[in-house]
């Protein structure tokens, strides 16, 4: 059973111990047939991950959370990335493709949402696992041995036999374990998990998340968990960053966040989640409207059309992400300071 680790619930990177330090990240995509026009999907994003830390990046569809995750490894060829992604003293934004390839998979690994499409259907599990190592010069025999060890570590029974199996012979949960094995086989410093359990049943979700947790605890690997599920955040992260319309709007330690989120969107989101441990007598308290279209974000604070606390200023001025006084959290809201606690049920 996992216990919450004691990591400083700090959001600043000033302490200099960050393993991954993202500063002012922006991601633009060219508009198809738009004659060089681009669309900014992620804006001015700061994010730090300390060694061994579990950070969750939360948001709804269109918030830019997945784009951010993919941008960290520059996986979208068409994306134009701005800002800095500092990792072990190097800026991933300026690295050549060749240098980046040496980091991908070995230093920073990634698990995607859909294990079905991540695995190549015509290669055996063993071949795919070993490939991660052989392309880096590990002899095939040794690679297969390590592949077997990786499966063993992930609790895949009869690992030796399973190496010869093909992806379609595995269940969804098993496939995600294989993907995890592929990710950790190179002993990465950071694991980026992009909605790793969204396609899975709830019991399998729990198993996979707990596996990630155990692996991280064993090897000191840091985890960046991309998810839309606040429940998952509560159970498997030390710190949380909430995204809305391409921006980070709140960042803090998990305990603080769930005790009392400060951004109106984060508050509304938390109230909207149905809870399995509670009956509702009244209707769920909700945020009106829908998340904005990234192509046409509202003026000023992108959340103002759905906010019940907006003032004149919210319509014109984009709120900056500021660290709150006496608190280890940052919020991007003009109205975050005065209100307190009224949301906690």
């Amino acid at each position: 059973m996992r216990t919450p680790r004691n990591t400083p619930a700090s959001d600043s990177s000033a302490d200099g111990e960050a393993l991954l330090d993202v500063r002012g990240l922006s991601v633009d995509f060219p508009v198809a047939g738009g004659r060089g026009r681009t669309l900014r999907i992620v804006r001015e994003l700061d994010l730090t991950v300390a060694p061994g830390e579990r950070v969750a990046l939360v948001g709804e569809s269109g918030s830019g959370k997945s784009v951010t995750a993919r941008a960290l490894l520059r996986l979208d060829r068409h994306a134009v990335i701005g800002g800095q992604i500092l990792f072990e003293g190097r800026d991933l934004v300026t690295l050549t493709e060749r240098e980046l390839r040496r980091i991908r998979g070995t230093r920073i690994a990634m698990v995607l949402q859909d294990p079905q499409t991540t695995l190549n259907p015509v290669l055996s599990i063993g071949d795919q696992l070993a490939e991660t190592l052989t392309i880096r010069g590990v002899p095939r025999k040794a690679a297969l041995v390590r592949a077997r060890e990786a499966l063993d570590r992930l609790g895949v029974a009869r690992a030796g036999e399973r190496l010869r199996a093909y992806p379609h012979e595995f269940s969804g949960g098993m496939r995600q374990r294989v993907c995890l094995a592929m990710a950790i086989i190179g002993d990465p410093a950071v694991l980026i998990a992009d909605e790793p359990t969204t396609a899975l049943d709830v019991r399998v979700q729990q198993q996979v998340l707990e596996l990630i947790d155990e692996l991280a605890a064993e090897s000191g690997m840091a985890v960046l968990l991309i998810t839309h599920d606040l429940g998952v955040v509560a159970g498997y992260a030390d710190r949380v960053a909430v995204m809305y319309a391409g921006r980070k709007i709140e960042g803090s330690g998990v305990e603080d966040f769930f005790a009392a989120p400060r951004h109106p969107y984060a508050q509304g989101l938390l109230r909207s989640v149905p809870r399995v441990d509670r009956d509702v007598s009244t209707d769920l308290d909700l945020i009106p409207g829908t998340p904005p279209n990234p192509a046409e974000p509202p003026s000023g604070c992108a959340f103002h059309p759905r906010c019940d606390r907006w003032v004149e200023r919210c319509l014109t001025e984009i709120p900056e992400l500021r660290v709150l006084q006496d608190e280890e959290r940052a919020v991007a809201c003009h109205r975050a300071l005065p209100e307190r606690e009224e949301v906690v049920a």
Partner: peptide
């Protein structure tokens, strides 16, 4: 019981207690 225990709760304290 297994199903109920696996549903994440958006509240770290309640999540631990429930498990």
């Amino acid at each position: 019981r297994a199903l109920l225990a696996a549903v994440p709760i958006p509240d770290p304290a309640a999540d631990r207690a429930r498990r």
